[in-house]
Amino acid sequence: MRLLVPLCFPVLLAAQVVPPSAPPVVPKLPPPAGFRILIIPDMEGMGSAVDIHEVIAGNEGEQYRTLTSDDYWQRFRGLLTQEVNAVIAGARGAGAGSFVVNEGHGGNLFANVLPWDLDTAAILVRGFPKPLIMVTGIDSTVGTLIFTGAHAGAGSPGVLAHNFAFDAFTVNGTTLNEVGINALIAAEFGVAVSMVSGDDVLIRETRQILGNDFVGIVTKYAVGRMAAITFSPAKVRRMLQDSSAVAVRRAMRGSFRPYRLPKPYRVEFTLRRSYPEMVVQGVDSLRWEGLEKTGDRSYRLVTSDARQMGYLLDAIERVVLH
């Protein structure tokens, strides 16, 4: 826990004084003692969660104020923390020695996991803004990347399906969901995704995107955007623990390919139609190097560094969440 203060503080400062497209100053995490896994827990795809009120705290901005239900969100934070602990337990059993957990869910501004209930060996990255948002903490010391509770991309029939702030997001013409975007950034560091959990729609679409044989865990079957056939939290934890052991064993043998696309990356995206005009104006005023506007709510960025895409995502999230 003490680590968190030096971690977050320079980031906040950096946001004010450095021009937006310059790489933020990021403190290095302590070197790993053993094989390091970076876990990115999101909430929409976790076991049992189906409704927006279960994954929103209500303090994320004006448009989220009525989308919470404290009796539900609080309950799901606990379940989320237990899911992460299950992943860590499995990975530890398979020989992993270092665990970094980077809050991947924007609820409560990226502070959903309960630090006091989390496995004490873990380093927890929480809060917002943070560089590279969902893959903050990535560097070449990371052995493998694990996504839990991920959700399907915008426009798909998955539970709470969406993609950051976008209705559409492609790189070199390929539609990427959030897992795909972050896998592409991680590949710059030579890191591959070894495990993904979420609903059946997410697992199917992520297999198509990544094209590697990551360990996939279906936590629930979507029967609507806010309804699903679910398994008990205990069963989901069992699946996560067993699967992370398998994933880590295979990752330590180097059997997963990082997700690479040809450079330069042609990143094209469209902001959500449901967002107020203010968000569009906010993104327009970013004056991001290399960012062109190609339509009403559409933009293009051409870059050879996937991290630039990550920094831009963070800047856009800041516009949306403020």
Binding site: S48, V50, V223, G224, A227, I229, T230, F231
Partner: peptide, 8 residues
Amino acid sequence: ILIRGYPK
């Protein structure tokens, strides 16, 4: 197995 949420 628990089926939850709405609309379904």
